[in-house]
Design a protein around this nucleic acid. Structure first.
Length: 269
DNA sequence: GGCTGGCCCTGTACGC
DNA sequence: TGCGTACAGGGCCAGC
């Protein structure tokens, strides 16, 4: 389940392999989720960026039109030059002018690939309405407090919604709420707790970034290596184990259809 | 317009 | 051993 730290780790490794390269040929699984991949053929990659959990490769075509190759890895998406383009779960591949082939593999097919005019994200509603980058200057404690106060939805649901902040998924949402001492089902978050949550979101994501991402099952870096952050998780996946802050047994429940772990003492409802 | 819940998708784990 | 079922969850969309 690649979230911001995992996608950023992949982006950093992918950029030197792709920037300056021209896509000579491409093919994709017929599913509408991936069928756009060949539209990158004939285009030169000028940059590889990330926005939230989306990878964006800037493309320059011979017609002078600027486009973007947009890739969302979904739950089980992987990108690599060493993957088999004829393998059973390969959903798309792009052959580059240096002889290498970038392969997109996605067992559960929750990912998505699109090629759009630069900056035109209307066909991708979540990307189009994405909130601030968590390490950007426009992600502020006050802005987070105001954004949370505008909605009556549960705080975890809001974090996962990508509007109050971009790039947070189930793992880092649980970690951030644990760090901030906020119950995932809370519907009202005061200014002080919003400030703690702001710090906690950045802290949880920064730790994930420093460790090259969290590998629970599928996530691999571009070179096929697992992340190291799974050993650092304080909350997610630790239900039934003692809280590392107070020793209380962590609980698990489903919050808005997402498995959720929290400490009933540190994170009171 | 915002919230909620269902659906997509397939490997894995578990119970019978 | 083999089969059936539940579960995992990000994004999208229909319904309220």
């Amino acid at each position: 389940m690649p979230e911001l730290p995992e996608v950023e780790t992949i982006r950093a490794a992918l950029a030197p392999l792709l920037v300056g390269r021209t896509v000579l040929a491409a093919d994709a699984h017929p599913s509408p989720k991936f069928a756009a991949a060949p539209a990158a053929s004939g285009q030169r990659v000028t940059a590889v960026r990330r926005r939230g959990k989306y990878l964006l490769a800037d493309l320059a075509g011979p017609d002078g039109r600027a486009r973007e190759l947009v890739i969302h890895l979904g739950m089980t998406g992987q990108l690599g030059a060493d993957l088999d383009p004829t393998g059973p779960y390969a959903r798309a591949w792009w052959r580059l002018d240096d002889g290498s082939t970038l392969v997109y593999r996605d067992v559960r097919r929750f990912g998505r690939i699109a090629v759009v005019d630069a900056g035109d994200h209307r066909s991708l509603p979540t990307l189009d309405a994405l909130g601030p980058e968590p390490f950007g200057a426009d992600f502020t404690p006050d802005g987070l407090w105001r954004a949370l106060a505008r909605s009556g939805a549960r705080v975890k649901t809001q974090l996962l919604g990508q509007r109050v902040v971009a790039g947070v998924g189930n793992i880092y949402a649980d970690e951030a709420l644990w760090r901030a001492g906020i119950h995932p089902g809370a519907r009202r978050v005061g200014r002080a707790r919003a400030e703690r949550l702001h710090t906690a979101v950045r802290g949880a994501l920064a730790l994930g970034l420093a460790n090259g991402g969290t590998t629970l099952r599928d996530y691999r870096t571009v070179s096929g290596e697992p992340g190291r952050n799974q050993d650092q998780l304080a909350c997610y996946g630790r239900a039934g184990h003692p809280c590392r802050r107070c020793g209380t047994t962590l609980r698990r429940a489903v919050v808005d259809a997402r498995g959720t772990t929290w400490c009933p003492r540190c994170q009171r409802a």
